[in-house]
Design a binder for these strands. Structure first.
Lengths: 200, 200
DNA sequence: ATAATAAATATTTTGTAAAATATTTATTAA
DNA sequence: TTAATAAATATTTTACAAAATATTTATTAT
């Protein structure tokens, strides 16, 4: 491995940086391959040595977003000194904050996510599965600590996801004011936590 | 009031019948005023004596849907012999079934609802407020019977709405299989009901 | 007057050719 | 050979005229 030469992965990353900045700002449709190439000081044709096509660059950008989000969520789970209840609340709230911020900073991200949802639904599904596992971990921890009393952990994780979907779905994020969504997210997760606990 | 002549309301209804059938089948965009008029044996121009424009006919169609739905939901609340818990579950499930059926029977209704959501958001909001009141009634009844222990009834009604939104939002209804949504709706409402009950 | 229509006009949609852009291929450089 | 480019080609978007449709107005009938 030469020290001064760029590796393929480095170039891929450079392309992704450029594409992400443009896609988030101007959208997938209004960004040209030529522009991305110029930002990377290369020809448009050369992009195809690193990605099969524009759509896949879009998908890779979305993936980067998603991975960032997942890292954040995994981090919450590992945070020491939090009860399972606190972790669950933090999980839902920080996810909401993070999605909200991303859409504020990169207004055209919405378009990108909509596209992925339409064309690469399997990516979305895989992510949901991944987050379901994280939620399941929290539930298992809560069961052990006596905070929760959940029999089917995976199913319950899926139910929690469904109940808070509205707080990370782009469509709703863009339709309601921040305060309202924030308050409701807090309220819903509190209600769910009550439901997860032991009966009298 | 003449016995043989149509009242204005009757004509309005006739127009709505014709429009609803076409909008639900072919969508707002692919239905012309001329077609609706023909179905009613009148000229296109004459439609404007009963509705200000095509969009408002669309809104009136949506309203009819909504009112039907609300009647169904009010009916559930009055159903004798059901506990508040059963009413809440029925409320969420039947609403889901009803929306699902409507979209199955009238595939282009989706387009209409999307349009209303975009252009006449206040209509959607008014409806949600109305349904919130119905939920609040159920909660109050549950409080009285000892099934629930809810302090802020209106706020909690709003939280329940948020948590089950995914089961009546057109976008999700069209993206996931019936079985999955049905199971999750049942699961979520069960979880919420647990959360509404008295603590140990 | 009221209800309706047909004709006139305004607006939107559609079809399509030109332009822009994505992608592939041929060529050059290291 | 690998990396890159420029040129060639395929595909998509745009611009805009023609056609369709929505809406208004003038006219007729009751």
């Amino acid at each position: 491995m030469k020290t001064m030469e760029k590796t393929v992965d480095e170039v891929r990353n450079q392309i992704l940086d450029a594409a992400f900045a443009r896609f988030g700002q101007y959208g997938l449709g209004k960004t040209t391959m030529a522009e991305i190439a110029k930002d990377c000081d290369m020809s448009a044709g050369n992009l195809y040595r690193y990605y099969p096509n524009k759509a896949d660059i879009g998908a890779a950008c979305a993936m980067r977003c998603f991975n960032e989000m997942d890292a954040l969520l995994r981090d919450i789970i590992k945070r020491p000194g939090l009860t399972a209840t606190e972790k669950l609340k933090t999980f839902v709230l920080e996810k909401f904050y993070h999605v909200y911020e991303q859409f504020s900073e990169q207004p055209k991200l919405y378009e990108l996510v909509m596209y992925i949802q339409q064309e690469k639904f399997d990516i979305i599904q895989a992510r949901l599965k991944g987050q379901q596992s994280l939620l399941a971990e929290i539930l298992a921890e809560g069961n052990r600590s006596g905070e929760f009393d959940v029999s089917d952990i995976l199913e319950t994780a899926s139910l929690i996801q469904a109940a808070v979907t509205i707080f990370n779905a782009p469509h709703f994020i863009n339709s309601y004011p921040f305060e309202k969504l924030e308050d409701e997210a807090k309220g819903v997760v509190d209600l769910l936590v009550r439901g997860l606990g032991k009966r009298s």
